[in-house]
């Protein structure tokens, strides 16, 4: 039981990478799909995109953003050689990818891993990939080298959603032959990208990160509205037509547990602080 962590790499204060041995995920894996990770018993199940993978080693590489307690705990409590309890997957529909020509990938924070993942699939069928990797701040921005095998045109943009949006507008303005925009991050971000895609009438594929507690739409916590219809992000998604996804309801639903998540993170940080002090005291003695 359990899935061993083969490699852990801390990229900066916000991001880290875990390579996990989970060969069962890869047998049927298709670009655009993801996994759900339950780090330990009593843990919280986390949907995570498969950033990169190695079929020979049977391993998947996850790019993780520290957002709440669970992602923080994975960072500080799990090391190479440790096991995560569950890796469920692959989850999600296989998106229908076509050769359309010039494709612009736009990610925001963790969303960069998602667009990279599906972008790989788009590249492999012959599309020309351009990549705008957006980050909230300079300190948390990642190097373009992480994504470089997917495109020779990667622009790292830090400084928030609005700034990334401007870059996207400039890109499409200068490249009227852009035939697809792919965006992922948080729905607040994707909504802004949709505004641009809508103005320029470019098809838009976007990533719905909904609250998900099971891989098959059982609980229905991952219901999203697409063109007025109820869809399940774990079954029908996570990739949806960006012109049709109801961003506002997704933003609303994603806020359901915000207060609880903050509380859990605060308590965990207190715990870590206590441990630090205890360790420091021991050292002095």
């Amino acid at each position: 039981m359990g899935f061993p962590i083969l490699k852990k790499e801390v990229l900066n204060d916000r991001f880290y990478i875990l390579e996990v041995h989970a060969p069962h995920v890869l047998e049927k894996f298709a670009p655009g799909q993801f996994v759900m990770v339950l780090p330990k018993k009593g843990g919280e199940i986390i949907p995570l995109t498969v950033f990169k993978y190695d079929t020979q080693k049977g391993s998947i590489t996850l790019l993780i953003e520290v957002r709440g307690k669970s992602t923080k705990e994975l960072l500080v409590r799990f090391n190479e050689g440790d096991e995560v309890r569950d890796v469920v997957g692959p989850v999600g529909a296989k998106p229908h990818l076509e050769k359309v020509g010039k494709v612009l990938l736009v990610g925001y924070n963790y969303g960069n891993a998602c667009v990279y993942n599906i972008g790989k699939g788009l590249k492999d069928i012959g599309n020309e990939i351009h990549f705008i990797a957006g980050f909230e701040s300079e300190e948390t921005a990642l190097s373009y080298t992480l994504f470089k095998d997917i495109s020779s045109d990667i622009k790292v943009v830090s400084g928030g959603i609005k700034k990334v949006k401007e870059e996207v507008r400039d890109f499409i303005d200068a490249n009227k032959d852009t035939s697809l925009v792919v965006s992922a991050g948080i729905p607040e971000f994707e909504k802004e990208i949709e505004e641009v895609a809508d103005v320029f009438e470019v098809p838009h594929l976007t990533h719905a990160s909904a609250i998900m507690i099971d891989p098959v739409g059982l609980a229905g916590s991952d219901r999203v509205f697409v063109d007025g219809e109820v869809k399940y992000a774990s079954l029908d998604g996570p990739w949806f037509d960006g012109h049709k996804l109801d961003y506002d309801s997704l933003i609303q639903r994603n806020n359901i547990f915000v207060d609880y998540e903050k509380e859990a993170l605060r308590k965990f940080e207190e715990e870590l602080e206590k441990e630090r002090k205890r360790a420091a005291r021991k050292k002095r003695v």
Binding site: G42, G43, E44, I45, K69, S70, E73, I213, D214, L218, A219, G220, S221, Q252, R253, N255, I256, F257, Y260, E261, E263, A264, K267
Partner: peptide, 28 residues
């Protein structure tokens, strides 16, 4: 916000032990 299916409500508690949140479990 606040509307659940019975399955979600029960799964959080029964499968992920949310009743122990935040000390003993991470699912709220």
């Amino acid at each position: 916000i606040g509307v659940y299916t019975a399955i979600e409500f029960l799964t959080r508690i029964n499968l992920y032990e949310a009743f122990k949140f935040p000390e003993g479990a991470d699912t709220p």
